[in-house]
Amino acid sequence: MVREKFTQIYARAAERKGGEAELESLLATPLSPQELNTISDARWLAAFTQKVFQCGMSWRVVRSKWQNFEEVFFGFDIEKMLLIPNDMWERKATDPAIIRHLGKVMTIAENAQMIHEAALAHGSFSAMVADWPQEDIIGLWRYLKRNGKRLGGNTGPYTLRVMGKDTFILSHDVEAYLRNTGIIDGGRDTQKSLLASQAAFNDWQQETGRPLCQISQIIAFSSGDNRM
């Protein structure tokens, strides 16, 4: 199957969203590597934790309790997280100020360890993320899945997007487009599908000069159930 030119995808998305100006107003702008480098390791742990808790839960409920999370977990300070003994983690998981879920609370300890180890190797977790090449963003997804806890699927990629790292997202609409055009034909998270997705996004990025996040959004807006 011949791959669509991105101009065709863009035109369809613009039509569905009410014009080019309206479409452009919806697109995210990633941070520069210099801007990413200013993010503290604590903020990364907070972001991962928030996304982990939002999985399978109301995002509104998580957000409404988030200040309590910040207080209960000492602002997600990495050094403090590494010093918390297991029995204290268990007590914190029963604190009514937060959402009580021992499994998800324990991801904080494991993801703090991942961030700490990355900081030892790269100077900071942000430095590692900032330096990770866009043409292998799936490699960063794989790193988060293998070294973190509950950061597989779209949890890791969505956190990267929220924090400003340029990444595409294999959302339902994007995955459906890739399947319908024959770019992927197996499981979404298989190595074959991830490599094929990365190759397609790399091609579109060379064609357009746009960041991966915008390409991903435009593809999603061009198809699926997101009409105005």
Rank of each mutant, 00 (worst) to 15 (best):
V174K: 05
A200D: 00
V129N: 09
S124K: 14
F53A: 08
E175D: 13
Q54A: 05
Y143D: 06
F221S: 09
V72E: 04
M106V: 11
S197F: 07
G19N: 03
R3C: 06
E70G: 09
L45V: 08
N37E: 10
L151W: 01
H116Q: 11
R100Q: 03
M81I: 12
G187E: 04
M163N: 12
Y177S: 11
W59V: 12
W141Q: 02
D95A: 02
R227T: 13
R12N: 11
D41I: 06
K80D: 07
V52N: 07
G164L: 08
S193Q: 02
W59E: 04
K5W: 08
K104E: 00
D225Q: 08
K65C: 04
R43E: 11
K165N: 07
Y158P: 06
T38A: 10
Q8V: 13
S126Q: 06
A130L: 03
K192G: 12
N86V: 13
D189N: 15
G209N: 09
I108M: 07
A42S: 15
Q54R: 12
I138L: 06
A121D: 11
V62Q: 10
A130Y: 00
Y10M: 03
A46N: 11
I9K: 03
T107F: 03
F53V: 10
R63G: 14
T38S: 10
A118H: 11
A118W: 08
R227K: 15
S58K: 09
L212Y: 01
E70V: 14
L82I: 06
M163P: 09
